[in-house]
Design a protein around this nucleic acid. Structure first.
Lengths: 346, 346
DNA sequence: TTGTAGGCGTTATCAG
DNA sequence: CTGATAACGCCTACAA
């Protein structure tokens, strides 16, 4: 027994296929009596419109795509991506869209893959993540006519596409203030080497807060740059502790975990360790490390809305919409150190 | 300038659209000369077949779906899911399929959502994860005519669908043997409370290895059951250490991290901690904890192959294929504890 | 309010 | 080897 179609339903009911279609897409056009009869038949038969036919006819696939980056050191870490992805799917669904996952070997390849999908009508638009300085993906995709929305601002470029980003500096700023208010004075910062935009951004918040409290002169001495590993964090923290630093804001949870270990070994007062990480990873939660949480849920939602608006604009040919550029703020999650990791007594 | 179609290309070249189609799908039917002329035009114009039209015509969307579970305690953890997903996308792509992500509020809802997608022609089949005892999803989906392949065996049921699973017990068995060979004698096991199938499976490997080495009588005393948290693992380990246990195999990395801390505090010889976790999470890697790695890449690949075969069978109506049931083995990843976490000296 | 007609872009079948 | 014809299932004008 084949699946019912508009035509088969219409035939059975003795009406035209158009009437059935109207019952679904423009019920107000159909006489109540007919409508109810048709609706009953639709439900009884379990009829569902075929998406391929709709896509062909409407020229929209109601599908978005996003590249699944291989887990990289410097990209969004696994846990965050997992959360982001989940919310993205939910947000897309809420707008009637599906999310398709893709892979690519490189950023260049990503542009090709996404463009191809768009040309073939597989997707209506795409989400970009892991933006970086000099990232040419957005402009190239836009040039190819592919609607784009990015998670991450276009560092240094003034791109013509909507994006959402999290203002890391506001997070580290809040974290620094929190430590200062808790009575600590010499707050250090452990960040990444090089001038990655995210890295500079996160350090800036600390610098600013310190300057605001009259420690501007010390920000040169009280900071360290290490690659993103626990051990590196610990080593850096020990060096800074020797210089008199007593609390730490870190660019990542990995570095923070290292700093935490260093701090534990020297002991500290109270239940809350004077160390704050970034990204609020599961480990941080498990150990009781305070951390900055990125509002990925909200980011996913905004991103989706932007993208859908962009798609609508690109199809209505009503011209361009105002590109939204949204900045969100991380939330400081304060925790007490898990008992088992309480500082080692001297 | 609209995108080229078969018709527009055909018109330009003065051939029929069918010929153009043949050049793409059945080149051998076309005279070399014509073929080359058409091919040149295709490349020059950047023509790409429209997937909606293909899907409509071929009645296959070349798309698979998988539910994105909200991160749960007992499900696949974030990091593993991330890896699995990535490989699934790659494997699907290799077979010409795309992967669509979905959400659902419950297992029941998941069946509805996936069935709906299949009825509407959005997807050709789906992947199931987080299978559990009494899981009715596979049979219901199969009943609805949706091709299915599951990551996780149908615990206790003899389902008629292909699946792949990882034999946890072989992992813990190998881990236990490794510790025994390293000279430890009294190996304990820290697992989860209750009788979750995965939990029992993982414990079984340890029990078996212990029995094989003449410690069968001790497996009752040398094990503990705790909820999956670091602190619980530590507490359990301390209790067992007091009973004379000297090394641990754990059902998860969380429990193992706790056990590791307990072991550190008492000190141990060598660089390799006498603790082995499960799932090879990033934290384990960072801290230098030995762990059992699930072959998710291979699982994704096999799963995809199974599903595609299943789809083909469901469409050729050639009857049913032999359902494959594949069991894979975890790999023991032995690590030396990160220097900074070296045991505390007495 | 309902029905008719045309077309979205592709592929399979069959005749030339 | 090539081309004409007929769907695949849906939606939007437009006509009745």
């Amino acid at each position: 027994m084949a699946r019912p179609t508009l035509v088969s339903l219409a035939r059975e009911l003795g009406v035209s296929r158009q009437t059935v279609s109207n019952v679904i897409n423009a019920p107000h056009l159909v006489k109540t009596e007919t409508r109810e009869r048709v609706q009953a038949a639709i439900e009884a038969s379990g009829y569902r419109p075929n998406v391929a036919a709709q896509a062909l006819r409407n020229r929209r696939s109601m599908t978005l795509a996003m590249r699944m980056h291989p887990t990289l050191e410097d990209g969004i870490n696994g846990a965050i991506r997992d959360r982001f992805l989940h919310h993205l799917v939910v947000a897309a669904r809420a707008q009637g869209y599906s999310l398709l996952l893709t892979t690519a070997d490189s950023f260049d390849d990503e542009v090709d893959v996404l463009t191809e999908m768009h040309v073939r009508g597989t997707i209506d638009g795409c989400v970009l993540t892991d933006t970086h300085a000099g990232d040419s993906r957005p402009s190239r995709l836009v040039a190819n006519g592919v609607p784009v929305a990015a998670f991450g601002r276009p560092w240094g470029h003034d791109e013509r596409h909507p994006w959402v980003d999290v203002e890391g500096w506001r997070g580290t700023h809040a974290a620094t203030n929190h430590l200062l208010e808790a009575g600590h004075e010499r707050i250090g910062f452990i960040g990444w080497p090089g001038n990655s935009d995210t890295g500079v951004d996160r350090r800036t918040g600390w610098e600013r807060a310190m300057a605001e409290h009259g420690y501007g002169a010390e920000t040169g001495r009280w900071q360290a740059e290490r690659v993103d590993q626990i051990e590196q964090g610990m080593e850096a923290a020990e060096k800074l502790l020797d210089e008199g630093v007593e609390a730490f804001v870190c660019a990542s949870d990995s570095l923070a975990l290292g700093a935490l270990e260093a701090v534990r070994r020297r002991g500290f007062e109270g239940l809350e360790a004077p160390v704050i990480g970034f990204d609020n990873t599961p480990v941080a939660r498990a150990m009781g490390l305070s951390s900055l949480d990125q509002p990925v849920e909200q980011a996913a939602e905004v991103l989706c809305r932007q993208l859908v608006a962009r798609i609508a604009a690109s199809q209505d040919a009503t011209g361009s919409v105002e590109d939204e550029h949204v900045l969100l703020e991380p939330t400081l999650v304060v925790r007490e150190l898990a008992e088992m990791y309480a500082p080692v007594e001297d």
